[in-house]
Design a protein around this nucleic acid. Structure first.
Lengths: 199, 199
DNA sequence: GTCTATAAGAGGATAGAC
DNA sequence: GTCTATCCTCTTATAGAC
């Protein structure tokens, strides 16, 4: 049943964002969805498969945002990259970004065997990669950086711990946090400069 | 026995850097040190205490680097911050940076109750905080950023996933990876600019 | 303080009835 | 496909002899 599986993946997404893969238990997922654990296993064969489904959902949503940006005729590649990165940061600050440990080997193995996941990941990388190359040609991104490095840096915003730390402090609004992290990603700690440095 | 405990903490440090807290088992630590698991528990009361000891060791080593930088009479606050950040990135690329999940609650509880850890963390934050404020006054760091944001951004380099990804690609030298990540941290994706922007 | 052996429990996965 | 009940492995932690 499609509807049921959607509900499962949504629960997994939330729990993954909240506690991460290792601390999320299948019992919790079942309880959150409101079905028995054995029923869960009729839909997904393993805990890893649950996580993979949540990541597929995330990639699909991200690609939808990419499509939306591609439709903005007047936007520059850099502005599109910025918009996608901002969207990811907003998702993260809102507590809806599922996060996986980069070290868990059983999980990595399952993901690397998951065709839909790999396909979407490749697709996203290629779409962003194009914009990166164009932004470098336009002088908006350091052309000496390999596009790969830029791509990973953007991807890494999805699991940047800084927003969570700032949010835990409770001093700043979500929008302010997103602005700061995005600005640091683009302009560094030195900040944007509109004129030549003074020294 | 002090020597024995040092060996334990060093093993924990390596395993923590390699697999992370959740995937590291106490059995592994015991095997790595070469003693029985029960003997481990004579030295440290819990797995969390092991991790805390490794983090204390890391903070002590970091503070030693801070001291070393403070002794460089001719260095600016910004150069000192850069040197400390570079050191952390080199540790990370070398696979010696212990990394803790920011979500594990039992671990967080133990850390927050660990006096030596908290004291050292506060000490490090204050030392770096001074340099941050001075670097902002000197115009080397965006003065509109709260120092807290800058501090967290620097701390986050310790668990930045980008170096590991680049290293996994096997295309680049460790030194090159460190240079890129550090440059992006300081100058952003747009890169350092020595003159006014063209547009 | 070190060992062997074991308790205690969490959590992923499955059996089998309906 | 859903349930209850159970299995089984892994892992933390401890008992108790030396």
């Amino acid at each position: 049943m499609r509807v049921r599986e959607d509900a499962i993946v949504e629960s997994v997404n939330r729990l993954l964002a909240d506690k991460g893969f290792d601390l999320m238990t299948v019992d919790e997922v079942a309880a959150d969805v409101g079905i028995a654990k054995a029923s869960l296993y009729k839909h997904f064969p393993s805990k890893e498969a649950l996580a993979a489904a949540a990541m597929v959902r995330l990639l699909q949503r991200t690609l939808a945002v990419v499509d939306q940006q591609a439709a903005q005729a007047q936007a520059s590649p850099m502005q599109r990259l910025e918009a996608v990165t901002r969207w990811a940061l907003e998702l993260q600050v809102a507590g809806d970004m599922p996060t996986l440990p980069s070290q868990n080997s059983s999980l990595r193995a399952e993901l690397m065997a998951h065709k839909a996941y790999l396909e979407l990941l490749l697709q996203l990388s290629e779409r962003l990669g194009e914009w990166i190359v164009q932004a470098q040609a336009a002088g908006d991104i350091d052309p000496t950086l390999p596009p790969e490095v830029v791509l990973y840096t953007i991807f890494a915003r999805a699991c940047d711990p800084v927003p969570a730390f700032l949010k835990a402090g409770g001093q700043h609004s979500d929008a302010q946090i997103v602005d700061w992290v995005l600005s640091i990603c683009l302009h560094g700690l030195r900040g944007p400069r509109t004129a030549a440095p003074v020294r």
